[in-house]
C-alpha cells in the first residue's frame, strides 16, 4: 500500500508541476518580453520584432529612460516623475497607516455609541470604485486650491486608504484580549497611552502588511494621477503613458521597457523585502 503510493506519487506530482509551470510561464511572458526588450537596441527590435532574444546586451536604455529621454517636451527621463511618486507614496503610506491603526484601535477596543455603524461606513469605502469618486474629488481639490499638486494626491490616497488600513488594523486588534485594556485602565493609562505603550508594540505584523498594501496600491495607482495632475506634477505611472504617446516617429520599445521596469522596481523591492511578512501577517492575528 505504502509502496503503491510512493510509486504513484511522482507521476501526479509531475503533472501538477507541469501545469503550474505552464501557467507561471504564461503569466510571466509579458514580464519576460519587457525585460528582454529593455536590453535590446532599437535597430535590433526594429529589424526583427518586439519578441526576440537580444543580439547584444544594450544597457544604455536604462540610462536614457532614467535621465535623458524626452517626455512631453522635457528631456529628463522618468527620474523627476519617480521623485514625484516617492514624494506621494511615502507620506501617504505613513499617514494612512497611522490613521488606520488609530481607527482600528478605537473601533476594536473601545465601545462607543454607533461604533459598528462607523466601522461599516468606513469599510464601505473598500467597495466603492475609483471612477465614482472622480467628480467629488475634483470639486474638493478645486475648493481647497490643491489642483495639480502632489499634495492633492497625498491627500486623496490618505483618505481613500483609510478604509483598507482601518479594516486591516481593526481585524487584527479585535484579537487583543479585553482584559489587557481593563488592566491598563485600572493602572491609569488613558486612550493614547494604551495605544502607544500596549497596542502599538503588538502591531508590527499588521503594520507591515498595511504598509506593503498601501505602498503598492498608491505607487501603482494611475487614474487619480492622470486625472488630477499634468505635466511636471505627474506620478510615474501617469508619466509612462505620456512617454508612449510622445514617441510619434519611431516607437522606442527598448527605452520604454526600461522605463517601465524602473517604475516597477520600488514595489518589487517592497515585495521582496516584505513579502514574507505579508503572507505571515495576513494569517496572523492571534496575540498570544
Amino acid at each position: 500500500m505504502a509502496e503503491a503510493i510512493r510509486r504513484q506519487a511522482p507521476l501526479s506530482r509531475w503533472v501538477i508541476y507541469a501545469v503550474l509551470i505552464l501557467f507561471a510561464a504564461f503569466y510571466l511572458v509579458p514580464l519576460l518580453v519587457t525585460v528582454l526588450n529593455s536590453v535590446r537596441t532599437e535597430q535590433d527590435i526594429g529589424s526583427t520584432s518586439v519578441v526576440g532574444w537580444p543580439r547584444e546586451l544594450a544597457l544604455s536604455n536604462f540610462g536614457k529612460a532614467w535621465g535623458t529621454y524626452c517626455i512631453a517636451q522635457r528631456c529628463e527621463g522618468i527620474s523627476p516623475f519617480m521623485l514625484n511618486s516617492i514624494m506621494m507614496v511615502v507620506p501617504a503610506t505613513i499617514i494612512s497607516t497611522l490613521i488606520g491603526a488609530l481607527n482600528g484601535y478605537s473601533i476594536a477596543l473601545w465601545r462607543f455609541r454607533g461604533d459598528n455603524w462607523v466601522f461599516g461606513i468606513i469599510t464601505l469605502g473598500v467597495f466603492l470604485p475609483e471612477q465614482m469618486k472622480l467628480v467629488p474629488w475634483t470639486l474638493v481639490l478645486r475648493d481647497l486650491g490643491l489642483s495639480n499638486t502632489i499634495t492633492a494626491l497625498v491627500f486623496i490616497h490618505v483618505i481613500q486608504g483609510i478604509s483598507f488600513t482601518t479594516l486591516f488594523c481593526r481585524n487584527y486588534y479585535v484579537a487583543i484580549p479585553p482584559d489587557l485594556l481593563k488592566a491598563a485602565k485600572i493602572d491609569g493609562a488613558g486612550y493614547f497611552r494604551i495605544f502607544w505603550r500596549i497596542v502599538l508594540p503588538l502591531s508590527p505584523p499588521i503594520l507591515i502588511v498595511t504598509v506593503i498594501w498601501q505602498f503598492t496600491h498608491i505607487w501603482n495607482e494611475f487614474l487619480y494621477g492622470v486625472t488630477f495632475t499634468t505635466g511636471a506634477q505627474q506620478p510615474v505611472t501617469a508619466a509612462l503613458i505620456a512617454l508612449s504617446v510622445s514617441v510619434a516617429e519611431a516607437p522606442q520599445y527598448g527605452v520604454q521597457s526600461a522605463a517601465v521596469l524602473i517604475a516597477a522596481l520600488p514595489t518589487l523591492l517592497v515585495y521582496l523585502f516584505g513579502g514574507k511578512y505579508f503572507l505571515r501577517g495576513l494569517t496572523a492575528g492571534a496575540v498570544k
Binding site: A183, I186, K288
Partner: peptide, 19 residues
C-alpha cells in the same frame, strides 16, 4: 477606575505581552 484606589488581578492575568 484609575482613581478608585483599587488593583485587580485577572483570570487571564492580562500581562502586557511586549513589556
Amino acid at each position: 477606575p484609575k482613581d478608585r484606589d483599587i488593583a485587580m488581578v485577572f483570570q487571564s492575568y492580562a500581562l502586557y505581552p511586549t513589556m
